[in-house]
Amino acid sequence: MKKLLLLLTLCSITAQAQNIQGLLNKATKIISTGSTSLSSDDIANGLKEALTTGAEKGCSNLAKPDGFFKNAALKILMPPEAAKVESTLRSVGLNQFADDFILSMNRAAEDASATAAPIFVNAIKQMTISDGINILRGDETAATTYLRSKTSTELKSSFNPIIKNSLEKVKATKYWEKAITAYNAIPFSNKKINPDLSAYVTEKAMEGIYSEIAKQEKEIRVNPLARTSDLLKRVFQK
């Protein structure tokens, strides 16, 4: 009888210990995620949804007419090293040429932005649970930083031919190369200017895309109204 009681007592202690360990494991998970109802899968799926929402909205915003051109923060201007070229054009009464040239660069960036979303979505699908947790614990643009690291090479390859074609349609490339080649030929010019206009516009277009996605990410993180699903609300709750 005593042996039976001892055995039952040991079983009870073991069961309680297992329950306590289970509670500790759950508590550790809660602390690590900052939520009482989120699993690792929830975090990963929530981050994927947030990234997809931000990328698609950001690309859509910039692909609209004047998405770049009338955005003071993202408008593509002459390269800084070409300021003298622009100044010379305007000084001889070619203001319209300079204005049209700047507009053509922005239109090319808008054209390219319309093709960017699938590249981002494909990269987002590859995000792991570990990536999601690190992003959630990161700063206000951690997701955008992650996306930049995964898409910049492919985005550049995709953008460049689109932008080059768009610039050539309005003969911007032709005028640019002529103007810059002439400028570079001037004796004693301190700095040669790269005549590869499509490379410059591609770089500025990519900067604009990532900037817009970062803007959307910040909005989701800080503004409850920007969280358009229950999962987003749970993942980003304060």
Rank of each mutant, 00 (worst) to 15 (best):
A112V: 04
A112K: 01
S113D: 04
A114C: 01
A114H: 01
T115A: 15
P118V: 05
I119D: 01
I119Y: 06
I119Q: 02
I119E: 08
N122Y: 04
N122C: 04
I124D: 10
I124P: 06
K125I: 02
M127A: 14
M127R: 08
T128V: 08
T128S: 15
I129W: 00
S130T: 13
S130D: 15
G132C: 06
I133H: 08
N134M: 09
N134V: 00
I135F: 07
I135L: 08
L136C: 02
G138I: 03
G138M: 05
G138R: 03
D139T: 07
D139G: 14
T141Q: 14
T141I: 15
T141V: 15
A142D: 12
A142V: 06
A142C: 10
A142G: 10
A143R: 00
T144S: 14
T144Q: 10
T145Q: 14
Y146G: 00
Y146H: 02
R148D: 11
R148L: 14
R148G: 02
S149I: 04
S149E: 13
T151A: 10
T151R: 03
S152P: 01
S152W: 03
T153V: 14
E154K: 08
L155T: 01
K156E: 13
S158L: 13
S158K: 10
S158T: 14
N160L: 15
N160R: 11
P161K: 04
I163F: 09
I163R: 00
I163Y: 02
I163N: 01
I163L: 09
K164G: 12
N165V: 07
N165H: 09
S166L: 04
S166K: 00
L167M: 06
E168K: 08
E168A: 14
K169V: 13
V170D: 13
V170L: 05
A172Q: 05
T173C: 11
T173L: 05
K174C: 02
Y175K: 01
W176V: 09
K178G: 14
A179K: 00
A179P: 08
I180N: 01
A182M: 11
Y183G: 07
Y183V: 10
Y183T: 13
N184R: 10
N184A: 12
A185K: 05
A185W: 03
A185Q: 09
I186V: 15
I186Y: 11
I186T: 13
P187E: 10
P187S: 08
S189Y: 08
S189L: 07
N190Q: 12
N190M: 11
K191N: 13
K191W: 02
K191E: 14
K191M: 07
K192R: 06
K192H: 09
